[in-house]
Amino acid sequence: MSSTTTRLAPLFAVWLAALGGSPALAAGFPEKPLTLVVPFPPGGATDTMARIISKGMAQRLAQTVIVDNKAGAGTTIGAGAVAQAPADGYTLLISSNTTFTVNPALKAKLPYDAQKSFESIGLIGTSPLVLLANPSLPAHGVKELVALAKAQPGKLAYASFGNGTTAHLAGEMFKLVAGVDILHVPYKGSSPAMTDLIGGQVQLSFDTNVAALPMLRAGHVKALAVTSARRSPSLPQVPTIAEAGYPGFEMLPWITIVAPRGLPPAVQKTLGKALADTLADAAIRADLEKAGVDVSYEPGSFYDARVAKELPLLRAYVHKANIPLE
């Protein structure tokens, strides 16, 4: 090696560090399969989205994307595992604001910090929650449900897909604004919650469009309302809770893919482009929309601002509703 090359080597290393990665990582990523962690059991809304999106990203990255279900504790098991993974782009998490703003608002201790542990590679879209009922329940709308609940305080129960999830918080918000006493029954994901709703073990459920649509089409459950501020394009005939007399009511889950914070910029760019191109694919977009996702891609830079805005609002609401921290 010449003396000139020897002198320049340290400068080259400094330049690479400033770029946030090595030439092999920037040029060769990904060199092995990626893992996309789903913090829910198979068969639920997030799992459905993950399996659709993973195929599209795998094609664009020319690598296998393995879907790994790590369910439990309202997404904190899966999220905690990803937060502790190396920030090299090979371990990703797909989840909703359950993980990033609802859990931090409801839980005193978490195995991650939503504002420090993750960075997003892009927003996938939103999936409004649906207030569902067993077909045998003698209520066909929110007003009838409220009247029934007030006539039978404490006798009705609603399922959610876990403590500290958007479904849980939506249920508690509904109880507060409607002035009703309804028991919360948490499950480890949408699939077991839906099974018990259909079986009549619980009368009500808050669940995502993705989980609700197949059961609604089959006639196994009925929809009383959606929790978004506007009617969902996939359920245009179903009114919002706000329309039923509770203006301002809104709980709209948004879904994103994140990685451990500290990704090399070249890896972040590669992953972001793969997700953007996947969501721009007409066939994949159609599959997601058919499943109940309102696709609305945004680059990963959206994440920090959205969490910083939403988290204090939810914390204030939890305090107002007197929901005890777990």
Rank of each mutant, 00 (worst) to 15 (best):
N69G: 08
A211I: 05
A73H: 12
V67Y: 00
L8H: 06
G245E: 01
Y158M: 04
V267I: 10
P247L: 12
G248D: 04
V267D: 08
R285P: 11
G141E: 02
A26C: 15
N163C: 11
T5I: 14
Y158G: 13
F29V: 13
D47A: 07
V14F: 08
D294Y: 07
L235W: 12
V37G: 00
F302R: 06
A218G: 02
I77N: 13
I53V: 08
L93G: 02
V185L: 00
N103E: 06
Q152H: 15
Q268A: 15
Y246A: 01
V142N: 06
L213N: 04
G78C: 06
R315A: 10
A223T: 11
A211Y: 01
G89D: 01
P239N: 06
G219D: 14
D196Y: 13
L129E: 09
G72T: 06
L8K: 12
A151D: 01
P233E: 11
A274W: 11
I66P: 03
F174D: 05
V177A: 03
G74D: 06
L204V: 04
P265A: 12
A13N: 15
K116V: 10
Y297Q: 03
P312E: 10
S232K: 01
W254C: 02
S234D: 14
P111T: 08
H140Y: 12
M194V: 13
T4L: 14
P233N: 11
G56I: 02
W254Y: 04
V14D: 09
F302S: 09
L204D: 07
A27C: 12
G171C: 05
P239E: 01
V180H: 00
A308V: 07
Q201R: 12
I66E: 15
T5K: 14
A27K: 12
K55H: 15
R7M: 13
L156E: 12
G20L: 02
A282L: 12
P247V: 06
N103W: 00
D207W: 03
K269D: 15
I182R: 01
L288F: 13
R231I: 11
V202E: 02
E250R: 09
S3A: 15
A73V: 02
V293S: 09
G179Q: 03
I124A: 05
F40Q: 15
F118Q: 09
A50N: 02
P135W: 10
D88P: 08
A45T: 01
A211L: 08
L176H: 14
K188F: 15
P312Y: 08
K290T: 15
V37K: 05
T4Y: 14
A223Y: 05
N134S: 09
G28Y: 10
L145E: 07
P260C: 11
S296H: 15
P23T: 12
N103Q: 12
A259E: 00
L176D: 15
R231G: 10
S205P: 04
P312D: 07
P153G: 00
P299A: 10
A308D: 07
L197P: 05
S205A: 14
T64Y: 02
M215P: 09
A73D: 13
R285F: 06
L197H: 05
A147M: 01
L11G: 05
Q201N: 14
H319G: 11
L148D: 00
V202Q: 06
T270Y: 00
V202F: 08
V202P: 01
D113S: 09
S117I: 02
L8T: 14
Y158N: 01
K269I: 02
I241C: 03
G245T: 04
P30R: 04
Q59W: 06
